[in-house]
């Protein structure tokens, strides 16, 4: 007996999910951050963020098709984290690091928060 392990399966599927997002296919929620709107798939959001997991596992909220985030959340920071969810690549720009980290704290993305902490420490002379 043997088993074939397709080593790039996870990244191939994620790439396709990102293509679906970019073409707005089967996206089922709009995230409002200040005045900016981001379309996404609830399943991807809740797989990556503790906050979205809590929201979409709540039977009263799981059918919402729009979610407004705290107005203090930075839309640029959110955009970077949303791209990370769909690509596994986190663009850590020095000018946006605090916005990214604070948004990651708000979204309960603990591993990203740890990574931001390490990035800040390593950049600190």
């Amino acid at each position: 007996d043997s088993c074939i392990q397709f080593t790039r399966h996870a990244s191939d599927v994620l790439l396709n999910l990102n293509r679906l997002r970019s073409r707005d296919i089967l996206t089922d929620v709009t995230i409002l951050v200040n005045r900016q709107q981001f379309r996404a798939h609830k399943t991807v959001l809740m797989a990556c963020s503790g906050l979205f997991y809590t929201i979409f596992t709540d039977s009263h909220k799981c059918n919402l098709n729009a979610i407004s985030l705290d107005p203090k959340v930075d839309p640029e920071g959110f955009a970077i984290l949303l791209d990370f969810m769909y690509t596994s690549r986190l663009a850590l720009k020095e000018s946006l690091i605090m916005a990214i980290m604070n948004t990651a704290i708000y979204l309960q993305m603990d591993h990203v928060v740890d990574t931001c902490h390490r990035f800040i420490k390593s950049s600190d002379p």
Binding site: D1, S2, C3, I4, Q5, F6, T7, R8, H9, D12, V13, L15, N16, R19, L20, S22, R23
Partner: peptide, 20 residues
């Protein structure tokens, strides 16, 4: 999969959805 030999396949695993 204990005791089962695993063969690694490094090629694409699913079709590629076009970007637009």
């Amino acid at each position: 999969y204990e005791g089962v030999s695993t063969i690694k396949e490094t090629g694409r695993s699913v079709h590629e959805i076009p970007s637009d």
